[in-house]
């Protein structure tokens, strides 16, 4: 189910917690699984639960509670743009509108080519750099003016062309 590499990474997380507290690694394990599979399918969650010796429902509670897990497939590039008040005061909503227009999709939608999914973010903890967006849960993009957004989209499209069905960054 999960690759050896993923299991190795999960094992490393497990070393952080007491031996009888394997469940502590569930958040990291689900994140690792999601990185590998693109999203958390039911079997993936069950496999993680099994690996950590916890009830699948307990793992599902986690996967559905924390925002950054995706329970359904998303595009190759998931863009989470913050529209919370501090960001909104400095263009967060404008940035979101620009993304919607350029990509032709609304929040929680994926472009037909499967490249982009747009999500509305709550505070990313980077309000001073508004507008901000987070790419695939990992890469924080600050000061995203319309030009910067266009540039980012172009870069990601180019990356997709260069490495067609490659794994998520």
């Amino acid at each position: 189910m999960l690759s050896d590499n993923a299991l190795k990474r999960i094992d490393r997380e497990l070393t952080k917690y007491p031996a009888d507290q394997k469940q502590s690694a569930v958040m990291a394990a689900l994140a690792i699984a999601q990185d590998e599979k693109g999203y958390l399918a039911q079997e993936t969650i069950a496999a993680v639960a099994d690996y950590l010796g916890m009830a699948p429902m307990a793992a599902y509670e986690i996967a559905s509670f924390y925002n950054m897990y995706d329970l359904a497939p998303v595009g190759r590039f998931k863009l989470t743009v913050c529209t919370n008040l501090p960001c909104a005061l400095s263009g967060g909503v404008h940035a979101a509108d620009h993304l919607k227009q350029t990509l032709g999709i609304d929040f929680n939608e994926t472009t037909p080519d499967g490249l982009f999914t747009l999500k509305e973010g709550e505070c990313l903890g980077a309000c001073g750099d508004a507008p901000v967006l987070l790419m695939n849960n990992k890469r924080m993009c600050s000061h995203m003016s319309t030009e910067a957004i266009d540039q980012l989209l172009a870069e990601l499209r180019a990356e997709a062309l260069a490495k067609p069905a490659g794994p998520k960054s």
């Binding site: 400095s90 404008h94 507008p131 890469r139 993009c141 600050s142 000061h143 319309t146 910067a148």
Partner: peptide, 10 residues
């Protein structure tokens, strides 16, 4: 509330 233009860092 328009985008407050500063150099992007991404």
């Amino acid at each position: 509330s328009k985008i407050h233009v500063r150099p992007s860092q991404c």
